[in-house]
Computed example of a mutant assay.
Amino acid sequence: MNFRAVILLLLATYVSALAVPPVMWTLEEGWTNAKRFAANLAPLKPKSLYAPTKVLASRHSASPSPSPSSGPTSVCSGFVSVYSVGQGPSGWLSATVMNATGVYSTTTMDKSQALKVSIPCITKDHSALKAYNGPDKKTCYVGFIQEEDEPDIGAGSENFGLIGPTAWTDSGAKPAVGDNYYDVITDDPTLIEASVWKYNSKTTELTAAWINTDGSSVPSTLFWDTDYYWFGFTGDLGKLISEYGSGNNFVQVKFYLDA
């Protein structure tokens, strides 16, 4: 199912569940998400955030940890400042992940609530953006999440992915099934890439690129769906807008590292 359709379904069930009496939440706590959707209830909150889902556990081994570098590496840390193109500063990326979708979804004007991250200051390759106060220690990187049936992005394609907590992947690695918070919420196996970011120490901008299945690197445009509150990436924002919405609900954004 297309990401946007899944997100709309999750948000719709989440909103409808607000009207359900508290006793219903107790009675239906043991239901699967499929049964909860049928009853117009919100998806279950993750019970364990420190192990792969059943789907992922059967399909791949645990995501590898980054290997130690051969020498000292300068690391730059701070908070992700969000700039909406054509509108101006929009605050900092919030550390809070919406339980209805499992991806980064909002900004905050309170720096104490912002996501704290770090990235190598100088590197020729794309790197992982590590989060220190995200929702889950196992998925502690700000990564890209993509569906399996349409993983590639580029000019002329409306394909897009989500920005959320993921496990580590190597720089230049092709998309592969891996641990991510979106999958914990939806139990829907997805592809991830974590080492997608580059930091410009002069401008402080964080730019990104997605590796397609053929190994090609595609510069990614970051955007924010201000109707349903989630951050995503695409290779052609104009095509995405023409297919799924207007310029009013898909806003191009830029990320900056604010120390």
Rank of each mutant, 00 (worst) to 15 (best):
S112G: 13
F250Y: 15
G154F: 09
W168I: 05
G143W: 02
K239T: 14
E158D: 15
T107A: 00
S77E: 09
T203F: 06
W168T: 04
G78L: 03
Q87H: 13
A131P: 03
W92E: 04
K137A: 15
T186S: 07
A176S: 15
I211M: 09
L27A: 11
E147Y: 07
C140M: 06
T207W: 03
E158M: 05
E147Q: 13
A95F: 05
W31E: 13
A17M: 11
N33K: 05
W168A: 06
S74Y: 10
D258M: 09
C121L: 05
L11C: 08
S65Y: 05
T96A: 14
T234H: 01
W92A: 04
L9Y: 10
G164Y: 00
P135E: 01
D258P: 08
A194D: 03
T123R: 14
S81W: 12
P43R: 04
G71N: 12
P120I: 02
L41S: 07
D149E: 14
V15P: 07
L18V: 08
T203E: 09
S242M: 08
I145T: 04
T26R: 13
S216P: 08
E193W: 04
S65W: 04
E205G: 07
Y256Q: 10
S171R: 02
L222R: 01
K138D: 10
W224R: 00
P120L: 02
D227Q: 04
D170L: 09
V6Q: 13
Q113N: 15
D236K: 05
L49P: 05
A176V: 15
K35P: 06
A100I: 01
F250T: 01
N2S: 15
L257G: 07
T139F: 02
Y256W: 09
M98I: 00
S67D: 12
N99F: 09
